[in-house]
Amino acid sequence: MIDIRIQLADFDPGGLTARLEALHRPAVATFTAIAAVPEAREFRIDHYPAMAKKELAAIGEEACARWPLAAVIVVHRHGLLKPGARIAFVGVAAEDADAAQEACAHVTGQIRARAPFWRRVIPGSARAEGLRGGPADARPPAAPVPELG
């Protein structure tokens, strides 16, 4: 199952993770990107809608072909966002911990490299340089969460 969503609205990482856990596979790994840019008041994420959906789906399919995955969920927001807002979510359910962690990191890296999204500071709100993606701009992939019981 590959679930790709590009949306204006915020999302619930806990609910998305619960969907993955409900598949009862041995491992789930997730990544949530946060707009950690305190000096900015707000910024806009633009995207190329048709290509973004296609590219995110292709990245998910590539991951499923490479690792034993039961599911991939990708959510990426667009539109106006404020500092501290959630930008994107990547989550996978896999047949083992290594696969979950590697696939989640791979999908995240490929989205960063290929997905057609752009950030733009709203004029007068902050420095554009502060909004580039990077280690301070997002949390690292979470460790796989083994299935309980």
Binding site: M51, A113, G133
Partner: peptide, 25 residues
């Protein structure tokens, strides 16, 4: 809708997009 390089042809294409480096996530 497919990434293309400077040397690639767009002959017969329906649409072409030109943009700066992407910044997803």
């Amino acid at each position: 809708l497919e990434h293309a390089g400077l040397a690639d042809s767009f002959f017969g294409a329906r649409e072409v997009a030109l943009f700066s480096e992407t910044r997803a996530l």
